[in-house]
């Protein structure tokens, strides 16, 4: 994704943050720690696969570079 996307994503996240920071008026029942755990695991589950895919992609990219460097014809 281009840099434009990243800028927009950050700007939009900023717009919604005040709403996030505010206390939750309508969710009285489940405990705060439970809600925290939901948000925490949401972030964890979302980031983890991207990190893994990213690192494997980076490893493959480096292997390709390595192989091109040792390629007899090149």
């Amino acid at each position: 994704m281009s840099r434009v996307h990243a800028v927009w994503a950050v700007a939009l996240a900023g717009l919604t943050l005040p709403g996030v920071a505010e206390a939750c008026a309508v969710c009285f029942s489940a405990t705060e720690s439970n809600r925290g755990a939901f948000i925490g695991t949401t972030v964890f589950l979302t980031i983890l696969p991207l990190l893994m895919i990213g690192s494997v992609a980076f490893y493959v990219y480096r292997r390709v570079k390595e192989m091109e460097a040792t390629e007899p014809g090149a």
Partner: peptide, 12 residues
């Protein structure tokens, strides 16, 4: 019944 604040992030 999830935290309604999460809805804002996921709307974006």
């Amino acid at each position: 019944g999830i935290d309604p604040r999460m809805a804002n992030v996921f709307t974006v």
